[in-house]
């Protein structure tokens, strides 16, 4: 056997091994997702089944989610979550991008202190202050009725500026010379920011908006602490959580899966469409 042939054989063997490993791993990762999708179409109720594939398929689980609103009002929760997620997305994206721009491009006395403060605050357990936040919101009357939405929007977007690191890192890699050129041409800082830097930084803008939307969209614990017993202000996350409580699980388990599929669709769509921005946003794309 010639040397070239043996090298080819080794390469073929390696390829087979690698592809087999990848196939097994991919199966492990895809399996639960498939399982949820199949459960959402399953005709049999209850959470414990003896077969992997459902015996009969149905759309009833989805219909039940939107029609059976007496115990758990899913359409309402869906709207609540959507409103909260959209508004906090806009606000936090603005906070994050503007803070990152300032920290990257401008030099002011509070710059270093602000960055150190963000690092220190990031070390505290996130919800350690959650109970205190609840007391504060209660003191200003934001924990009753529809104002809970406002409270949640404030909670999700309020501290957003503290997670500037990724966007700042990105802005740091975009050439400063473009900014300077714009300012020599008579742009104010504000114009430079909105007309030059933001359009040039599409990956990070999209990445920021994406994460700012998904955060509130899937958050569970904050919503639970703030909403407490106000069932009509529940978000989807709390609704889904309740469906798995002992008194509901037998009737609602398959609808839980249907709800899970429904809230995953927007994320999946955003994610797949914007995957390349996600990767680029993490590493910095515009180079000089």
């Amino acid at each position: 056997m010639s040397k070239q042939n043996s090298a080819k054989a080794v390469r073929l063997r390696n390829n087979i091994i690698v592809h087999t490993i990848l196939a097994i791993l991919a199966a492990i990762w895809v399996f639960p997702v498939l399982w949820v999708i199949m459960t959402s179409f399953r005709a049999e109720k209850g959470s414990y089944v003896s077969t992997f594939f459902p015996k009969a398929f149905t759309l009833d689980n989805y219909i039940k989610l939107f029609t059976d609103t007496t115990i758990l009002n899913f359409p309402k929760m869906f709207m609540n979550t959507l409103i909260i997620a959209i508004f906090s997305c806009i606000l936090s994206a603005f906070f994050v991008l503007s803070a990152s721009y300032c920290l990257s491009r401008m030099r002011f006395r509070m710059r270093k202190p602000f960055m150190n403060m963000a690092m220190i605050l990031g070390l505290f357990p996130g919800f350690m202050s959650m109970i205190a936040v609840y007391f504060i919101l209660k003191a200003v009357g934001l924990t009753e009725g529809a104002r809970i939405r406002l409270a949640l929007i404030m909670c999700y977007s309020g501290g957003a500026a503290l997670s500037f690191q990724i966007a700042k890192g990105f802005f740091d890699t975009t050439p400063f010379a473009i900014d300077e050129a714009a300012m020599i041409d008579g742009c104010t800082r504000w114009q430079t920011f909105t007309k030059i830097t933001l359009p040039l930084s599409k990956p990070i803008v999209i990445y920021t908006v994406l994460t700012a939307f998904i955060g509130p969209w899937v958050d569970f614990i904050f919503a639970k602490v703030i909403c407490r017993a106000n069932a009509d202000q529940y978000t989807v996350a709390i609704g889904l959580w309740r469906m798995l409580e002992k008194e509901y699980i037998d009737n609602w388990y398959t609808s839980f899966a249907a709800g899970a599929v429904l809230i995953s669709i927007p994320i999946a769509a955003l994610f797949l469409k914007l995957q390349k921005y996600y990767v680029n946003g993490m590493t910095g794309a515009v180079k000089e």
Binding site: L25, W29, V30, I214, V218, W241, A260, S264, A268
Partner: peptide
Amino acid sequence: RFCFVISCAMPMFVSLLI
């Protein structure tokens, strides 16, 4: 990549509860 990333689409609390 798609096979692995698709599980990101499911919110973490959903996959954990499941």
